[in-house]
């Protein structure tokens, strides 16, 4: 009934799934693919790529402290990195508020400082290079059931927030002057946005790691940006690219025996390059 090629394709897909850790990895990768690329839409449109990258790196000391206390347990790592992320955001806000330094300078200072602190803490442990590698580049094969549940809960919360406040977030990002004229609580929405970015980064760390995090946020969203003129389409396409990259990347990592985080990001980048070359809008090229 089935042609041999379909059978072999099916085995190609199902073969890795006989391992429990691969099933868990795939679920985690898909969830991360969805929420990163969804929130990433805002990151791209608001020009927060550097902020996202910095936020991811600055979680390291939080992760390190939680790791020293609780090992690889899910919740301590979650709270540790979330607290580090919030401290970073607050620190950047405080330095910028005085008006003495520009925001990107403030971000650079805080993020490098926090990152160094994280490395220093981890290096106090004996076999630190292995642990550091996991934090930096992810350890998707070590995803536990608790990790998946946490990322599901966070993911649903983020999707719900975006659905509920879609209009308002759009206005706050697109036209802050209108937002103020309409008396929207701008600070609340800006905080909500940063908080969502931080949450998504925290639950995605295990999949791609600190160093490659920013790619999951911006590459699928940027790819979608080149293909559509409507925000909701951009979000849907971004999610599509995100899910495709994370699952294809995971399979690539299984069969080609390469690091999974890197494989996922590479697939993201390949899709981007393809779309960039063949994009009907060719925005980036036409504009110059």
């Amino acid at each position: 009934m089935h042609s041999p090629s379909i059978v072999s394709l099916l085995t190609f897909i199902t073969a890795p799934l006989k391992y429990g850790f691969m099933v868990r990895s795939l679920i985690a990768a898909v969830i991360v693919g969805i929420i990163c690329s969804l929130v990433g839409t805002y990151v791209v449109l608001k020009g927060l790529a550097f902020m996202g990258d910095a936020l991811a790196h600055s979680l390291l000391p939080g992760l390190a402290v939680a790791y020293l206390i609780g090992g690889t347990a899910t919740m301590p790592l979650f709270w540790g990195s979330l607290i580090a992320g919030l401290l970073t955001a607050a620190g950047i806000g405080m330095i910028t508020r005085g008006g003495q330094l520009k925001e990107d300078t403030a971000i650079g200072i805080i993020f490098a400082g926090m990152f160094a602190l994280g490395i220093a803490i981890i290096s106090s442990v004996r076999n630190y290079s292995v642990d550091l590698t996991h934090f930096l580049f992810g350890n998707i094969l070590g995803v536990t059931r608790a990790d998946i549940i946490l990322s599901l809960v966070i993911g649903l919360a983020v999707v719900l927030l975006i659905l509920l406040f879609y209009k308002e977030l759009l206005v706050v990002i697109f036209d802050p002057i209108l937002a103020r004229t309409l008396r929207l609580p701008i600070m609340v929405f800006q905080f909500m946005l940063l908080f969502m970015i931080a949450l998504v980064i925290v639950v995605s760390l295990q999949v791609v790691g600190v160093a490659l995090m920013v790619a999951m946020l911006i590459t699928p969203a940027a790819t979608a940006y080149m293909l559509t003129n409507r925000l909701h389409w951009m979000m849907l396409l971004s999610v599509l690219f995100g899910v495709a990259s994370s699952s294809v990347g995971l399979y690539a990592s299984y069969y080609l025996n390469i690091a999974s985080g890197a494989a996922i990001v590479l697939v993201c980048t390949l899709i981007f390059i393809f779309v960039f070359i063949f994009s009907p809008k060719r925005k980036l090229l036409i504009k110059v």
Partner: peptide
């Protein structure tokens, strides 16, 4: 202060 390339 609007990004005219915004997808709207």
């Amino acid at each position: 202060m609007i990004d005219w390339d915004f997808p709207v």
